[in-house]
């Protein structure tokens, strides 16, 4: 009897806790990304975008929106999951998970889905803000070419990055470790992953280097889903996204088995 109850309830309650957690600090989790997306669209999309000509003839503002949508999703999924673990470590709450019958798998999926929920919320807000900018600037809104692919890339990318956030947070021994990972690894990868430019504009050598950046596949997957254009084959991007999700999942399982649950 109790085993049956342990199958879903602990997972669902932890997932619900994650949603409630980021909704309690809605200014930090939703409004702040809204402001930053608006600034990116205003400065890069409208102001600088006027002087950027894409070879496809597409408006730079339209090109930018999918990248910002995915960047918002990945960043927030990562931040939500990692800050949840780090915050729980700091408060001593992480040991609560360990002493309860929550399995590692349940914790990973609940926290990852919590992270992707925030990521999707920010992605949606960014997309709608982008649509407003598009309407003002171009006189029309973007139509999504493939909604299913869009959901696929947002979900797979968001869950993967949330899992990476969990792993980094579990291995972090101080807030500095987490912030160093964000500043020195995650941020450069996102900015160099094709959010603001097409890798076709890079020299051949750097194009090849870019192919090792996992974020390139997520960004281009979303760009293809919305605009129908991509620097890489979309099915290859989908395959790479699934491979990366698998890698991040294995990494998070390993981290939960070996990382520290003890409070700071």
């Amino acid at each position: 009897m109790i085993q049956q109850e342990l199958r879903w309830t602990p997972f669902l309650l932890l997932f619900w806790r994650e949603i409630r957690r980021f909704m309690k600090v809605v200014v930090q989790t939703v409004l702040a990304p809204l402001i930053s997306s608006s600034l990116y669209l205003l400065i890069f999309g409208i102001s600088l975008g006027k002087s950027i000509d894409l070879s496809s003839g597409m408006s730079y503002l339209a090109f930018l929106i999918p990248g910002l949508v995915m960047m918002g999703c990945l960043n927030n999924a990562f931040s939500n999951a990692s800050s949840s673990v780090v915050g729980s470590k700091f408060a001593g709450e992480l040991e609560d998970y360990k002493i309860s019958p929550l399995s590692h798998s349940q914790i990973i999926w609940a926290l990852s889905l919590g992270g992707v929920a925030r990521g999707l919320m920010v992605a949606t807000i960014t997309f709608f803000v982008g649509q407003i900018f598009c309407y003002i600037q171009l006189g029309e809104m973007l139509s999504v070419k493939s909604p299913l692919l869009l959901v696929f890339f947002l979900l797979v990318g968001g869950i993967g990055f949330a899992m990476m956030g969990l792993s980094v947070a579990l291995w972090s021994k101080t807030f500095d470790h987490l912030s160093a990972f964000g500043s020195f690894i995650l941020l450069p990868l996102i900015y160099l992953g094709g959010v603001f430019y097409s890798i076709d504009t890079l020299p051949v050598f750097w194009q090849k280097v870019s192919m090792f950046n996992p974020i390139l596949y997520f960004i281009n997957g979303v760009r293809y889903s919305i605009l129908g254009v991509s620097d890489v084959n979309v099915w290859f991007a989908a395959l790479m996204s699934l491979v990366l999700l698998f890698v991040f999942y294995i990494l998070s399982i390993y981290s939960f088995n070996r990382g520290s649950f003890q409070r700071w």
């Binding site: 109850e5 309830t9 602990p10 309650l13 619900w16 806790r17 709450e93 609560d96």
Partner: peptide
């Protein structure tokens, strides 16, 4: 031995979530 701080949540929420971790909805 040590006090656990649950930042965002109030007592009733903490106990509700904690019950959930043990499979009690």
């Amino acid at each position: 031995q040590e006090i656990v701080n649950h930042g965002f949540f109030n007592i009733e929420e903490i106990l509700t979530f904690h019950s959930g971790y043990f499979g009690i909805r």
